[in-house]
């Protein structure tokens, strides 16, 4: 068995009595408990941010990418004919699932927020809007633009890319930020545990000396330190994560249409990943303590 595996086995099934050779050093332990708790609490939000951004990106991508609008600008007497021609073009465009000219009422509804309800639209030279819903694969926007230019001058395709791409970019950055926060959190925990191991071993130099004199191997000496810090990190992060989940659960749920922050909630996979986080914290702590203890014990001979 490799040393790491046997240490891991000792960690889980090892002789707990062996731990008593190291005096319980309250300070380092409590600090470990507290910091890993706080870090795990933050990790829940990092995770929620990443997952929510990912969800938002998919949603916007799907919804916005599958809709497009054609604006037809023409003198009022040609408008109906051009609308007809546009719909005909769309019928023969592959990838278009559905195309429909908006009715006057619908257009009025769209404009109402800006112009009010009692405006008579038929008195204004407004463009006619045609809504397109594409199939999953989508249609060739450039090709359609060229065809419209040739066959229906005045019809302009807007496939929302100008709106969609910067949004996607922003969401992608959010997601990256979320993962970055998680990585940082694990790095902080590893650093803290390394420091804690060093402090514990230094504070227990006499213990290490006595154990060495009586024939204790490094892995025996390490065991108690590793087990303590790993378990403290595991317990601390479990508490932190539970608190984080409780906080997210208790956050007022904002109406979905209100946009971004309403996405900070956990769904299926989020809950599962959160509940796995303490184990990740435990593994990080384990690796960091073993590593730090190896280095320190090699120095004290």
């Amino acid at each position: 068995m490799t040393p790491v595996l046997s240490l891991l086995r000792n960690l889980i099934f090892g002789d707990i009595r062996a731990d008593s050779v190291v005096p319980p050093s309250g300070f380092t332990n409590q600090l470990t408990l507290f910091i890993s708790g706080a870090m795990a609490f933050l990790a829940v939000f990092g995770l929620a941010l990443s997952l929510a951004s990912g969800r938002l990106a998919t949603k916007w991508n799907n919804e916005l990418a599958r809709t497009a609008t054609i604006r037809i600008i023409a003198p009022p007497d040609q408008l109906a004919g051009k609308t007809e021609a546009t719909l005909k073009v769309l019928q023969t465009t592959s990838g278009v699932a559905e195309a429909r000219a908006l009715t006057g009422v619908e257009q009025q509804a769209l404009l109402a927020p800006w112009l009010g309800h009692d405006l008579r639209l038929d008195l204004l030279p407004l463009p006619q809007l045609v809504e397109i819903i594409s199939e999953k694969v989508g249609f060739d926007a450039t090709g359609l633009r060229l065809r419209l230019l040739a066959e229906v001058p005045g019809a302009i395709l807007d496939n929302h890319d100008r709106l969609r791409l910067p949004l996607l970019d922003a969401v992608f950055r959010m997601q990256l930020l979320g993962w970055g926060v998680l990585v940082l959190i694990f790095a902080v925990v590893a650093a803290m545990v390394t420091l804690g191991t060093n402090v514990s071993l230094a504070a227990n130099a006499q213990v290490v000396n006595v154990l060495r004199l009586l024939g204790a191997t490094d892995s025996y000496i390490k065991q108690a330190f590793v087990r303590r810090l790993t378990i403290k990190t595991f317990v601390g992060s479990t508490l932190g994560i539970l608190l984080g989940l409780l906080t997210i659960w208790a956050m007022p749920s904002v109406d979905k249409s209100h946009g971004f922050l309403s996405g900070i909630e956990l769904q299926g996979e989020g809950w599962i990943i959160s509940l796995l986080l303490p184990f990740v914290f435990g593994v990080v702590a384990f690796v960091a303590t073993v590593n730090a203890a190896n280095q320190v014990l090699r120095k004290i001979s």
Binding site: R212, L213, L214, G215, A216, T217, D218, R298
Partner: peptide, 10 residues
């Protein structure tokens, strides 16, 4: 080796 020293001390 370090572990051998430990065994020797026993």
């Amino acid at each position: 080796e370090r572990d051998q020293v430990a065994m020797m001390r026993r």
